[in-house]
């Protein structure tokens, strides 16, 4: 028996916000996140029957999402020229270091600083921090999502965290980050 659009929506309903959140963490902006989710839905739709019997569906969908993200990144890298309509959204990423000293005291600014620091990690480290420390996936789930042995995940995650701590200990982030902690 084939299931239709309604069933697909029902299957996705409990997970879609989470999937979008992961997409947004990976892409860093709305248009790219929406494109990624659109590609995910197109890819998943034909598999809607099989999806009903997948045990850890959310982790499985994040895995599909992550691989689509990698495909998109590879496609972009392969393209020697930039499409003009994408330029602005790419520029939005990893920016905004020009806040005033007053604004830096604000929590939102500290959070933005932390996002900026996470975004300065290399892509492998960034993905590990996003999935593990931001989205809370376990090492076992990470190994499954990223197709990497658990031992390798452990050592890479440790290096990623160490790099994050190093970046955080540098000015001007240190002051803001600790201000945020004190507030929290």
């Amino acid at each position: 028996m084939r299931f239709g659009k309604k069933t697909f929506e029902t299957i996705l309903q409990p997970h879609i916000k989470h999937l979008y959140r992961v997409a947004y963490r990976l892409c860093g902006n709305t248009p790219d996140s929406e494109d990624l989710i659109q590609e995910l839905l197109i890819k998943l739709y034909p598999q809607r029957n099989e999806m009903q019997s997948i045990e850890y569906l959310r982790a499985w969908m994040v895995r599909v999402l992550y691989h689509l993200y990698l495909d998109i990144k590879r496609r972009e890298q392969r393209s020697p020229m930039a499409w003009l309509d994408n330029d602005e959204t790419k520029l939005d990423r990893l920016t905004s270091n020009n806040t005033t000293p007053e604004a830096l005291a604000e929590e939102t600014s500290s959070q933005q600083q932390l996002i900026n620091i996470v975004n300065t990690l290399n892509d492998d480290q960034r993905v590990l921090i996003i999935l593990s420390d931001i989205e809370g996936y376990t090492l076992k789930e990470l190994a499954n999502i990223l197709d990497i042995p658990i031992g390798t995940i452990k050592s890479r995650l440790s290096r990623a965290r160490s790099q994050l701590r190093t970046l955080l200990s540098r000015e001007p982030y240190q002051q803001n980050y600790h201000a945020n902690i004190t507030k929290g």
């Binding site: 879609i16 979008y20 959140r21 947004y24 998943l44 959070q111 931001i134």
Partner: peptide, 22 residues
């Protein structure tokens, strides 16, 4: 601090359209 980093919510209109497209 990492767990509490803000993230944008999915736009329901986009979602509806994305489902249609799929």
């Amino acid at each position: 601090a990492l767990k509490n980093l803000p993230v944008e919510d999915v736009n329901p209109d986009f979602l509806k359209e994305a489902m249609q497209k799929a």
